[in-house]
């Protein structure tokens, strides 16, 4: 693959992928799915259909039952490289006993440092501070995460992903638990980052109208089939 192809190629490419935890009982079939740099793609679908599982599979945390996955220009089925993927899990995955700054610094270090470096650099620190202020959490910076509200914790996880300066952000319901104003602030910062850096955003959003309003494309995972063993991804692509 040549240099130019790599920079213009998709950030995520899935081909004939079947995901799930049990090969006997797969969750979703994805014949084809691509996400390009600068693009915002939303995934919607009923609860329990496998949206989170799809993100975890792309992140390399669950192996697909079959098919090939390429992320951030890496070889098929190799996990994304250090710092390239900013993941906001549905369950957040924060270090609850550590401070907001500590959590966001983890992301900033992942984006900036070689694996053996443990001490934070000043560049990482300024990235962390910037991400924290873009999420409106400056006054909580030293607070242990467990003492924050649900929506505040969600914003910490988002800040952690932004601080990585990743090529791809995957955010699982990252706008839940937020009031309209805060939601606009968080969404605005993330979209600004994606548009200005030419990275991509793949977001799981159960609220279809919100998904349509933020995304370039919407993929709906739909359990329309009678066959209980397989759920097709119906790529209902809505151009906005």
């Amino acid at each position: 693959m040549s240099e130019t192809e790599e920079s213009e190629g998709p950030i995520i490419r899935l081909k004939d992928v079947t995901i799930g935890y049990d090969p006997e009982d797969p969750l979703v079939d994805i014949p084809e799915m691509e996400v390009f740099p600068g693009e915002i793609v939303a995934i919607a679908g009923p609860s329990g259909i496998g949206k989170t599982t799809l993100l975890r599979t792309i992140a390399g945390l669950v192996s697909p039952i079959s098919g090939s996955i390429e992320v951030c220009g890496g070889a098929p089925s190799s996990p994304p490289k250090r710092g390239e993927l900013g993941y906001v899990p549905q369950k957040l995955g924060l270090v609850r006993h550590a401070s907001v700054l500590h959590n966001v610094m983890i992301g900033a270090n992942a984006g900036n440092k070689a694996p053996w470096a443990l001490l934070p650099s000043s560049l990482a620190r300024s990235k962390a501070l910037e991400a924290i202020s873009s999420m409106g959490l400056v006054d909580k910076i030293g607070e242990p995460v467990r003492r924050l509200s649900g929506g505040q914790q969600r914003r910490v996880a988002t800040a952690r992903a932004l601080a990585q300066s990743p090529k791809l952000i995957m955010a699982d319901e990252f706008l839940s638990e937020l009031d309209e104003e805060t939601m606009q602030m968080v969404l605005g910062s993330v979209i600004d980052y994606v548009r200005s850096s030419g990275s991509a955003l793949l977001v799981v959003e159960h609220d279809i109208s919100r998904a349509k309003s933020m995304a370039d494309r919407l993929l709906v995972i739909d359990d329309g089939r009678i066959n209980p063993f397989i759920t097709e991804i119906t790529a209902v692509e809505v151009k906005v």
């Binding site: 992140a59 900013g86 270090n109």
Partner: peptide
Amino acid sequence: NKTPLEAAEAMGLSKMEMAFNVVIPESAN
């Protein structure tokens, strides 16, 4: 809880960083 470890893994952190930045602070109590 395994989500913090998963988040660290998705970021591509080394085992050392996971130990020092995630596991030890989270289990400090």
